[in-house]
C-alpha cells in the first residue's frame, strides 16, 4: 500500500542512542521523548539516509547486504510497517 513511499531518517544529531542488552534506547532531542526499540528497528533506521529518500524496497536491499532476510516481499512489508511507525514517532520523515 505504502511501499512506494520514500523515507529519510531524522538528522543523526537529533537522536542520542544507547544500547541496553538487546534493546536500544533512542532519545529524540526534538520531542524530548525516549523510545525503547529492538531489532530490526535500529538497523532500519541506520539503513535510512538523512538526505536521500529511500523506499522500503531500497531499505531492504541495503539490509540484505548484511543480513539473511528470507522472502523479499514479506520482509519489505515488515520494513514498510516499521517505517510508518518510525514516521509516527518523528524519527523518520515520509517524503
Amino acid at each position: 500500500m505504502t511501499a512506494k513511499c520514500r523515507y529519510c531518517r531524522e538528522e543523526r544529531d537529533a537522536i542520542a542512542a544507547c544500547a541496553l542488552d538487546d534493546f536500544t534506547l533512542l532519545y529524540h532531542r526534538t520531542s524530548g521523548q525516549t523510545h525503547m526499540v529492538i531489532s530490526p528497528v535500529p538497523e532500519i533506521l541506520d539503513a535510512l539516509d538523512e538526505a536521500v529518500p529511500r523506499t522500503a524496497a531500497q531499505v531492504h536491499d541495503r539490509l540484505a547486504d548484511h543480513y539473511d532476510l528470507g522472502d523479499a516481499d514479506s520482509v519489505i512489508a515488515v520494513i514498510d510497517a516499521h517505517l510508518a511507525e518510525l514516521t509516527a514517532l518523528g524519527l523518520a520523515r515520509r517524503l
Partner: peptide
Amino acid sequence: VGQAEVFMRLTQASTNYV
C-alpha cells in the same frame, strides 16, 4: 533484572526524568 527492564522501572520511579 535486565538493563532494559531496569531502565523502564527507573523512569517510572523518577519524578523528573522527563
